[in-house]
Simulated scan of single mutants.
Amino acid sequence: MPACPICTSSRTVKNGRIHNGKQRFKCHECGRQFVEHPHKKVIDTATRALIDRLLLERISLAGIARATQVSEQWLQTYINKKYAGVSRQVQVTPKKKGRLTIQCDELWSFVDNKGNKQWVWLALDADTREIVGVYIGSRDEAAARQLWQSLPPVYRQCAVAYTDFWAAYGAVLPTKRHQAVGKETGKTSYIERFNNTLRQRVSRLVRKTLSFSKSLENHIGAIWYFIHYYNASLLV
């Protein structure tokens, strides 16, 4: 067996293989895991672009690592940096003052365990189908206020908002421009359909998934990453 590169001990054993099939060893003395003749793999631009596209699909990080032949450790570091740089503000086409209509709803999710609930609050323009407001957090009046504040000013000034009967909306949205409605009216059908799209495209939101988030920062980043992509796709 090869000697440990850290403590030089010869008390090493085979310990599985790394992502590319190369033999991995473990040192009994210091616990170090290593491979013989390691080399640093340069991830090219094409592979990074492929990863960026795969992050928009219902694929686990382990699946992306296998498909692109990169290590899970490198992929996690890449994703941490990418999601940290995603803007937390909506990017929508400019609107003139006038009658605007939005539909609002909340989507349940969790981070690390189902006891740590994180609600995704969304507002959608009923005419353009753009997501115009986003907040991720608790499901209370303060969160509803954060959703309201996330809207571009023209929507806060002019939009009529259709929501379900969750009390937090009534406490925050302007009374004269807020209408609480049931699903049977169809007044919130677009946002409910988007909720389904979000669950199907962002693997960490799929019900009974094994791809759940362990980091709140990455959970929020992944949702914003897809929303920016979705809004941009409406302009194509």
Rank of each mutant, 00 (worst) to 15 (best):
G98H: 03
K183D: 00
A159Q: 12
R66M: 05
A232R: 13
A232G: 02
E184T: 05
T185D: 04
F194W: 05
D112A: 15
V202N: 01
D127S: 13
Q118L: 02
R58N: 09
A144T: 01
K40F: 11
R201L: 02
V92I: 11
Y162E: 07
L122C: 08
A159H: 09
P2S: 12
A62E: 06
P94E: 10
K40Y: 11
K26V: 12
R201G: 01
S150N: 05
L210W: 04
E130Q: 07
F25D: 12
K208R: 13
G170R: 08
I131G: 13
R99W: 02
I64D: 13
H228D: 10
F226R: 11
I6Y: 10
T128E: 06
V42T: 14
A159I: 04
H37V: 04
L75C: 10
R199M: 01
Q73T: 09
V90I: 10
A143L: 09
V42P: 00
A46S: 15
K41Y: 11
L107T: 08
T128P: 04
A180H: 09
S87P: 08
V70S: 10
T128W: 07
A168M: 09
A142F: 03
L234P: 09
S10L: 14
C30E: 01
Q103F: 02
L54I: 02
A67S: 10
T163A: 11
V206R: 11
I191M: 07
V86A: 02
A126P: 00
W166T: 05
V35D: 00
R207F: 10
S138F: 04
H39V: 00
E184C: 06
S9I: 14
N80C: 02
A62K: 13
R145C: 05
V172H: 04
C30K: 00
K117L: 13
T12V: 15
K187I: 00
I59G: 00
I43N: 03
K114S: 11
V206F: 05
T93S: 09
T47M: 03
K41T: 13
A171M: 14
H219R: 04
C158Y: 14
A62R: 12
A232S: 08
Y225N: 15
R88A: 05
R156L: 03
K40M: 09
T175E: 10
D112V: 11
E29H: 07
L122G: 12
S71A: 07
C158R: 14
L234C: 08
T197R: 08
Q89C: 11
I64K: 15
G137S: 07
G63I: 08
R193A: 04
A222R: 13
S150I: 00
C7A: 14
P174D: 06
V181E: 05
F165Q: 03
K82L: 15
C7D: 14
R201W: 00
N231K: 11
F110Y: 12
K95C: 06
P153F: 08
W148A: 09
A126N: 03
P38A: 09
G186N: 01
I191R: 04
W108G: 05
R48I: 12
Y78G: 10
W148L: 13
V172C: 01
I59L: 13
I79W: 04
M1A: 13
V132H: 01
F110G: 03
E192N: 15
K81I: 06
